[in-house]
Design a protein around this nucleic acid. Structure first.
Lengths: 132, 132
DNA sequence: TAGGAAGTTTACGTTAACGTAAAGGTTGCT
DNA sequence: AGCAACCTTTACGTTAACGTAAACTTCCTA
């Protein structure tokens, strides 16, 4: 039973097209230790895990995370969780991030409200122009 | 009736302390046209409007806005809204920003859920360690 | 077999957002 | 008068996240 695990392999250009980023960027993320594709000869081969990570990297960027920050989030899943000390410091990190994000939620809601006001204002001005 | 408008004047170091940023940053924001303090001799004098703008600049940064983007948002409030063409292009800009922010809201909620999962996971592992 | 497409490494260039240092002006003590 | 605490301008330095170009290999195919 030769099972099919081969469908989850991607070339660098596959991923660059799928995520609409340059191959340069993908190689740079590797330099920074955020993805670690295997090799066939010289050529990089990406798997499902790498693909997910790319997605998370891009999500992080949309949130204004640096690559280093995203990397630290990745590590949270891999860190050795056998010691209570480790666990507590991880949980502290998690809580810091959560607080940052809650602040961001507030910020975003504030800006959305302002933009809505502005939009309404524009619509009214536009209507006034038409009815003249 | 000499009214008191003088309480809304700040020096550069006042603001740098209040917002916990360097004076260098504040001067840089001026270079970029985001604040425009008046002068008494050489010395910069900031008013309430400048202070509000600084607050908005920092909020923008927390959301990952570039200074240029924040500047464009400022302009939205000042632009002359006399032409329908202007108005429509402004509203397009507003909508683009709104879409970005909605995407960010989704992203943040996703990350918050993941962090919560991770936290619960940590708590359980910790409990298991204690009950051993 | 010649060329084109996709891959690689190496390395210098670029932009944003400041940091940092030098050199100097003004004000207020003491 | 002196100096400490501010302020100023000018200008070069720095980091992150790539862009861009050169020079080369490997594979496919017309």
């Amino acid at each position: 039973m030769t099972s099919k695990i081969s469908s989850t392999k991607y070339s660098i250009s596959d991923l660059s097209k799928e995520f609409d980023i340059t191959t340069r960027s993908i190689r740079f993320y590797e330099d920074q230790g955020l993805v670690s594709p295997s090799r066939k000869g010289q050529t990089r081969i990406y798997n499902q895990r790498d693909k997910v990570r790319l997605k998370l990297i891009l999500r992080g960027k949309r949130l204004g995370f640096s690559l280093a920050e995203t990397g630290r989030l990745f590590e949270l899943y891999d860190v050795d969780k056998t010691s209570a000390k480790q666990l507590n410091s991880i949980m502290e990190l998690i809580n810091n991030k959560k607080n940052d994000l809650k602040q961001q939620l507030e910020d975003i809601n504030a800006v959305l409200i302002e933009l809505n006001d502005l939009e309404v204002n524009c619509q009214e001005t536009l209507k006034a122009l038409e009815n003249k």
